[in-house]
Design a protein around this nucleic acid. Structure first.
Lengths: 209, 209
DNA sequence: CACTCTATGTTGACATGGTTTACATATTCA
DNA sequence: TGAATATGTAAACCATGTCAACATAGAGTG
């Protein structure tokens, strides 16, 4: 919009969006306020008019991530609860795998937003409420919280080991990320996800629990 | 050992051990070479005689963690494969929950040891080999790698959400860590672990896969 | 329209902490 | 005994988060 105006106009959102861009392109550890500011055309201390500290900015970034996650989990079609669960998990994983850096920041409190984690609560609680709703529908005698916890652990674990390229550690040693054609890798990832979710669904559905 | 000697004698190991101590007592983000050095009685640049950089030190810390993890998973008794699996998972989780900071560092490459992750390979591969051995014994028609991946995802996911105090996010909102008596929390954790591992075992054992 | 208030942005300065360089001291080994 | 090597120290450098003092713009009010 503006060209050379003294005031930027929408620095708050711009900083969050640019941060996410850098996080995804280069990694969260490459975020620094000076370069970030310059790259959006303001001076190095301008962010302090919108965020109390770098941690606060990253907290806002994480909150934005939770809201994106919520959206990604929103279009679970109606139908069989078991199928809804699978769809929900796939939606969750789709977001996590499409935004690995951001997903990492969302769950790295001590590193990026520890001192202000309270501010994240509303964002993350809102996102998890959506998960919870579907998870609660699951048939089963065990308390829904336990089922929900098991599902979340599995999905979160999958997201993290896949995003960290650890998938093939088991069975054939770590991949030299360079040597393995990414199409083959993706296929393995898809297989692993499908299998893991199937195991999970079968286990949850078992009458013996 | 030594008292006022110019040379420390065993600075390499001392630095690793002190690092782990700080990581567990205060958190990984509080590691800094200056204070670390002073706290073990050497000058701030002494670590550079043993580690090329802070990242290299943390890589060594992570490697030490993997070796501890390996030990923790070593005493799985002989017997029924399914029971061995549960025991293995419990051993893994026991280590992860007893050393939350260290476990976090082990799996936070981009934050702590990205530039030198190759050096971690032998350590982590060695640890995972042990997991793999038991995981391979599982009966099942699916490739053992897929089963192994599902197990690891679940266990890793459990470890992380428990270590980050996210356990009760689902079902009743985040705990105010202050308000919740830790014994109640621990009980929930144990319940969640048992349930999740049971779901997993049942799912893996299902003939329909 | 002029005036003031507030929001927003800028520059300069400082503190922390990782790292390099030059130097010092101990230890090993021929 | 005397290098050569390993290990430790001190001083300085640089990157980066942050604060303080100042500048500018836009909004609202008389």
């Amino acid at each position: 919009m503006k060209k050379e105006s003294y005031h930027h106009g929408n620095l708050y959102d711009t900083l969050i969006e640019k941060s996410i861009e850098i996080i995804e392109m280069q990694g969260p550890e490459f975020i620094n306020l000076r370069d970030l500011s310059l790259s959006v055309g303001v001076s190095r201390t301008a962010p302090y008019r919108h965020f109390k500290s770098k941690a606060h900015l990253l907290t806002a970034v994480a909150a934005r991530g939770f809201s994106m996650l919520e959206t990604a989990c929103s279009d679970v079609p109606q139908g069989d609860p078991a199928e809804r669960l699978i769809e929900l998990c796939n939606g969750y994983l789709h977001f996590a795998l499409a935004n690995p850096g951001l997903y990492g920041v969302m769950f790295a409190p001590e590193r990026y937003h520890n001192p202000v984690q309270e501010e994240l609560r509303s964002a993350s609680d809102k996102a998890f409420l959506k998960l919870e709703l579907v998870l609660m529908e699951l048939p089963g005698v065990k308390p829904a919280e336990l089922n929900a916890g098991a599902v979340w652990a599995m999905v979160h674990g999958l997201a993290i080991i896949i995003n960290q390229n650890l998938v093939q550690v088991i069975g054939q040693g770590r991949p030299d990320s360079a040597a393995i054609p990414s199409s083959a890798l993706k296929k393995d990832v898809k297989l692993l996800i499908n299998h893991a979710l199937e195991v999970l669904a079968v286990g949850l559905a078992s009458p013996s629990l």
